[in-house]
């Protein structure tokens, strides 16, 4: 989170809508993410000119063109590195990284793990549609085994990973998940992401209507979502189900879904603790396991020093220790002699 400034004039959603015509396919999940971002930002206390949206390549990476903020459409996979440079150059900027499952976790996987490790104060949104859209339908590193695509007509034999688990493995200090069809849930995590100091990683399940329609059907469909989605909130019990009749407990060393009733009540089941890595890891493991609901919300949020703070603090200290540093002091350092 950057320096808080109060806006003199209250900004509205329209202030963040650029004049560029949005060119995603009709019905694409990206529209919802854009709309939610444009609703969230006016509510924040950051001035409009302080925002920078940085992206890589892919459908999602067109996002910055549609925001009336500073924006940089980079090259494939490199958005985290570009954004790191932006933030280190000017720590007062509020920098968002927009990426997809191919951009952020295939070609740009290396940058992703390292930006998370460094904990630079950026906000990353991963648009995960489990497919390559812009190149017209090849499987991605998050596509499920057996999935038939243009480049896997016999079914994919490429085992996917769970991006949020990768983020956790890379020591991310903030991990959250939303889904395109749930405006409220997404706005909550976007708001929390910007407020978090350090790298915020937000995975959004996003439907690709052309090449992978219905990939997230169980959690997208309003009818089935309550039974398949678990919304977690810090300090609150892990309850889900249409009738709020199901919960999560720890049985031995494993989580288990239980029916709430006489034995299990919201009071005695597992409560979410976003600072507890054991709970975060458990939620991440549940994500790809058909026996469990898919967790949404803030899965992890911990405090840790940020790279940008450490760097600028080091500069401050060095200036203090060494006193006035001019070109003379630099040039004349070490052994010199007069001719």
């Amino acid at each position: 989170m950057s320096e808080v400034k109060t806006n003199e004039i209250k900004l509205t959603r329209k202030d963040f809508v650029s004049s560029s015509e949005v060119r995603w396919c009709p019905g694409c999940g990206d529209y919802a993410i854009l709309a939610n971002m444009q609703r969230v930002l006016p509510e924040m206390e950051t001035k409009k000119e302080k925002y920078v949206f940085v992206s890589g390549i892919g459908c999602s990476s067109r996002f910055p063109y549609y925001m009336d903020t500073y924006g940089f459409h980079g090259i494939h996979g490199r958005a985290p590195a570009i954004a790191s440079g932006v933030k280190l150059a000017n720590p007062e900027l509020e920098v968002w990284v927009i990426t997809g499952d191919g951009d952020g976790f295939s070609i740009g996987g290396n940058h992703m793990i390292h930006v998370l490790r460094r904990n630079i104060d950026l906000n990353i949104i991963l648009f995960n549609n489990r497919i390559y859209g812009l190149t017209k339908g090849q499987y991605s590193p998050t596509s499920q085994l057996g999935m038939k695509t243009k480049s896997s007509p016999w079914g994919s034999v490429d085992r996917p990973f769970n991006p949020a688990s990768v983020a956790f493995g890379a020591e991310a200090t903030f991990i959250a998940r939303g889904i395109d069809v749930d405006a409220k849930g997404m706005q909550d995590v976007l708001t929390r992401a910007q407020k978090h100091k350090g790298t915020s990683f937000v995975e959004v399940y996003q439907n690709c209507i052309i090449f992978n329609d219905g990939e997230f059907e169980d959690v997208s469909n309003k009818k089935t979502r309550p039974d398949y989605a678990l919304y977690v909130e810090h300090g609150k019990p892990m309850v889900f189900g249409k009738e709020k009749d199901k919960g999560i407990i720890i049985d031995g060393s494993h989580p288990r879904v239980v029916e709430l009733g006489d034995k299990y009540t919201p009071e005695n089941i597992l409560h979410h603790d976003e600072t507890n890595p054991i709970i975060t890891n458990m939620l991440l493991q549940m994500s790809l396991d058909a026996h469990f609901p898919t967790p949404f919300g803030v899965l992890r949020a911990v405090d840790a020093p940020t790279y940008d703070d450490l760097l600028h603090e080091q500069i401050k200290q060095a200036k203090k220790q060494r006193g006035k540093s001019t070109l003379e002091t630099l040039f004349y350092s070490g052994d010199t002699w007069e001719v």
Partner: peptide, 16 residues
């Protein structure tokens, strides 16, 4: 983390 990130970060810093 690599050569590409080296220049990419520099491009970001230049933009800023």
């Amino acid at each position: 983390e690599d050569e590409i990130a080296g220049i990419s970060s520099a491009i970001g810093a230049s933009f800023a």
